[in-house]
Design a binder for these strands. Sequence first.
RNA 1: GCGCGCGUGGCGGAAUUGGCAGACGCGCCAGACUUAGGAUCUGGUCCCGGAAGGGGUGGAGGUUCGAGUCCUCUCGCGCGCACCA
Length: 954
Amino acid sequence: MHPDLGFAHSSRLMSGMRRQYPFHLIEPKSQSRWEAEQTFRAFNPGDEVPAEHPFGKRHDLGGRQATAAELPPKYYILDMFPYPSGAGLHVGHPEGYTATDILARYQRARGRHVLHPMGWDAFGLPAEQYAIQTGQHPRLTTEANIATFKRQIQSLGFSYDWSREVNTTDPDYFRWTQWIFLKLYNSWFNPATNRAEPIETLTYPNDCDTESKRRAHRDGKRLAYVSEAPVWWCEALGTVLANEEVIDGRSERGNHPVVRKPMRQWMLRITAYAERLLADLDTIDWSDSLKEMQRNWIGRSEGAEVDFAIARPTAAGLTESAGDPVTAACLAEQLTGTDKIRVFTTRPDTLFGATYMVLAPEHPWVDAITTAEQRATVEAYRTEVAKKSDLERTELAKEKTGVFTGGYAINPVNGERIPIWIADYVLISYGTGAIMAVPAHDTRDFEFATKFELPIVQVVQPPVEQADWRGFTGDGTSVNSTGPEVSITGLPTSEAKSKIIAWLEEQGLGQKTINYKLRDWLFSRQRYWGEPFPILWRKDEDGVPYHEALPESALPLLPPALDDYKPTSDGQPPLARAQEWLNLPDGATRETNTMPQWAGSCWYYLRYLDAANSGCFVDGDAEQYWMGVSNPKSEIRNPKSAAPGVDLYVGGTEHAVLHLLYARFWHKVLFDLGHVSTAEPFYKLVNQGLIMGEDGQKMSKSRGNVVNPDEILAEYGADAFRLYEMFMGPLQDSKPWNTKGVEGVYRFLGRVWRLFIDEAGEKDFEQRCMAQPGEEASFLAELKPAPRVQEVAPTAAQLKGLHACIKKVTEDLDGMRFNTAISAMMVFVNEAGKWEIRPAGLLRTFLQLLAPLAPHLAEELWAKLHEHLAQVAPSLSYAPWPAFDPALLVEDEIELPVMINGKVRDHIRVPADADNDAVQAAALAAERAKSFLEGKTIKKVIVVPGKLVNIAAG
RNA sequence: GCGCGCGUGGCGGAAUUGGCAGACGCGCCAGACUUAGGAUCUGGUCCCGGAAGGGGUGGAGGUUCGAGUCCUCUCGCGCGCACCA
């Protein structure tokens, strides 16, 4: 039979698609071995480690229970769990997962006890919308999607501990989400201790003399409370949205229009934690840009609140007062009573420059101060503003609008009478909803004053002489800032601020204040597919409704079965359709809102620690071992924080504020209440970059540039896919996909394969597979390493090549530089491919380096290189990471460039330990160098030991 | 507008504290093996130039013996926030 006859009948082989190596046999083989062995299971303190488990063997813990102190140092490496959509996995998902898997495998080899779990963030709108359309229960859709995601993720060979898998829609999971909600509900934030405390520690003011007053006081302090405030209502989605879910007046999901609407909603008091959420950013290892995004979101600004008296039109002696000083005594008289407007400013040093005041159109004082002549104008403006959506209000903000109310206020520092305007550039929701306008030193006020011809008075001198003070908003020196009672003229901005604040406080006219952009978190949604609130509503003796918590024993509170998942016709959430569920025999009714999708993802990293625990959200010992620094052997040393929490968390930037801020908030509450041992959940966080389509555009169905991982896997295998995702470039960068690049790393894996398996063996193997396709697996098992692979001592050069590779790969994995680690392995393999005799021991060490990145191929070859010694291979997953020997990397003689005036002109070889004088002499004696120096005077010779020689000549 | 980040071959990217720019991979060119090659192996590949040599890290200056790296200005791109007083 002609040897090539078989090939001709395979379209795959004929078309040049011949596999570089039999990954289609190797990958399922490795994966089923890991599954059978439970290779990647992590053990909680007190768990029995099976006698034969490779982790137990490595750490001498097999066959017994290990205490936290006996377990090796932990390494908790976490991926942002996915929302399992119907579309299946996208090539972007596995990028982060591959990076964490490589590190998880690397850290196991380094001897760490690795916790690397995966789960499903499975509540959410798409499954619910599908349910509305088809009547199919969202659980069925969700389960099908999870099955697809799980199959796809598992086909990549990730070393997750699947025994810890969580699913936010599982009653055994959301029971604890509800439990945490009850913790929030039953706690208040004590400003004196700066932390959350059980609601029982709340003290009541003396006037709380009835139970209903006490209840009102208590309900006003809870971390989870009910508010009637205006919220973002999205008609298309049939639900309210959090501030964070609204972008430019449209829903983040689906880009539907949203409107403001007052509704009764559950809120979480995240603002109480604003300062701690901000301050603790300094204790964690996140990228600067991410921290900056969180800081911006929290939006802390320091300044002062200042009271401006309202000048009533009837007030005598307060008419136009050109040079007619109004005394502080007169002002004090004005400020008795409540006729004052409080403004917030970050620049109290510019008080003397306040030439008018602006209120938000919705400000409660507007009616009272508007004069009869202006009333029609003011009303018209307010109506116009109310009609505008917030989108228009911000997008059309290029041109300032506003109207005069006819009212005046008194500037407390100089008694000036200033007009009060209303304008929509002042927001009711920030600060006090009112500002003092300093047009000379605030861009917005400047634009407004210019348009409406309001006076502009300089009160800050810019530090640079020539600079125009008009519109100058930086720090400088106060000028024109002397009043009858106080002067800050001549003071630099920071001193001027503190002096004027001190004076205001003394006079009872204002005080130092800190404001945050952060708002409380709108926590309820009018949906079906989310966690029901464990809350009942009752009415008191006066018929006033009030809420009360279900007991913990009533958890989990399951959502009712429904035939129709739409909201009710009168706009009630879908849960209101279930009358039996809704109405309790004792007359109470259930809360019909559900929690937002963020709820489940706020704490899933804690559930992984003890996923099957039915008595507790997480066992204390497990929590302390995996999250804390209580383990004396822990290698994590965080200088600023007592605790690391999750050692490494990898995910996309899309969660930079929402998920990460919410999770930090919940974690801090749990910390305050003593349920977790660290103040922060995620010590180190890395955002992977976006993978774009081959055209350099963001991948999307409409562009048709989406790459399906299943197809790549079928053609090149999981190892090549993993390797390519890492080889594309730095993890944090965005980069375009290029399938040709996959072929590059695939060829590299083929070269690795051929280092071990020679052509003759391979050909024979392929022919046998072709003849008996059913026997492929056993033919693979019989395949022997090439005769060139021998148990011999390596040469010095071979050892040096290997150890250079160990060094580079080790350092690069530590620094998460996967692309250059792969490049180092390519260099090694290119070199090793030339060796006539390939020392087996050396190749085994190389496989250990390759194993975290291409684990399937490494396992297969590792097994073969032990079989040929008639040994059963030890577990590659737990084989100790090779150390490099620096002594092997030292050169006796080194080549140095000789530069003349910074240009390389020659090279010299000198002993590695040659002193500078010897190197200089050698450089000056170098032939080519000499010819360049002819006719020139040598001014200076710089010798950088081990690097180069530079001769400055002219 | 403000804040953060980034600009290096035809392409993705290397160059860890200022020290031989372009590692590694893709693509391309040539060769070997071959009935064949979209397999594999070998060599080449920043630009100009036959060579010698010269030029070169978005642009313009500067510091330095020496700059992709540091400083100043400027242009371009990406991300975030967006009237937050």
